[in-house]
Design a protein around this nucleic acid. Structure first.
Lengths: 121, 121
DNA sequence: CTGAATCCTATAGGATACTG
DNA sequence: CAGTATCCTATAGGATTCAG
């Protein structure tokens, strides 16, 4: 058992997972890896099915864990921009691998995502 | 939206995540990547805190998804052995990355896991 | 536009006892 | 040894409304 800040982990993988647990976190990170910067509404549109509560909550947790930053672009009208921190960008191999693995799996099942990507918007 | 076998996914990452969602699946996969083969009890001992229900359930799901295989070694006494399938082994980069990332993070926080691994058993 | 605040529920997950 | 079978609960997550 590893103990860090009053939390315990069974192994280093468990430590990493604690940053990305939650239904939408990895998808949010993947989105930001792809677009670099994104508004709240842009995130919402690209995460079909996400609720306001979960999007706001998981963005806060990701920010609190130092994986992304929120920049207020203007106060009136209120606009924000989310970007990855260096720590967040260090997870790029994770989202890249999951994306490639998923594409491979889809291909084995007759779906050419890259070619037909426009169909899945 | 991607549809495959009556399930929908927002993107390829979402497809991949559907294979590893669940509190213990990635830890199980990491365990099997490390040990190659493992008995039920060996898995349980190395996943501190896992309940019988979840271990059995997630093993079944992983088997059903074609990521691991269960081999019955002997009927009496009843002994089994879990091993990764080829598809399961194809996730090796995932567990490897999460492990390294966790080790790096721990190091930034004053914990040298590789050196002091024996302390965390 | 970007959330915060409620309210609600489904289910993931845990504890325990039991079986071949 | 390798699980099943129950029972139970906490909480992750969703729907909706309101606000700066």
């Amino acid at each position: 058992m590893i103990t860090l800040r009053d939390k315990t982990y069974t192994c280093p993988i468990d430590v990493s997972l604690s940053f990305v647990n939650g239904k939408w976190k990895i998808l949010i990170l993947g989105h930001l890896h792809q677009f670099e910067k994104s508004s709240y509404s842009h995130l919402r549109e690209n995460l079909p099915g996400v609720s306001e509560k979960m999007l706001a909550q998981q963005l806060k947790e990701l920010e609190g864990d130092g994986l992304l930053m929120k920049n207020v672009l203007s106060a009136k009208p209120y606009r924000v921009e989310y970007t990855l921190t260096e720590r967040g960008r260090s997870l790029a191999p994770l989202t890249a691998f999951l994306s490639e693995w998923g594409i491979d799996y889809l291909k084995e099942n007759g779906i050419d995502y890259l070619k037909d990507q426009h169909l899945y918007k």
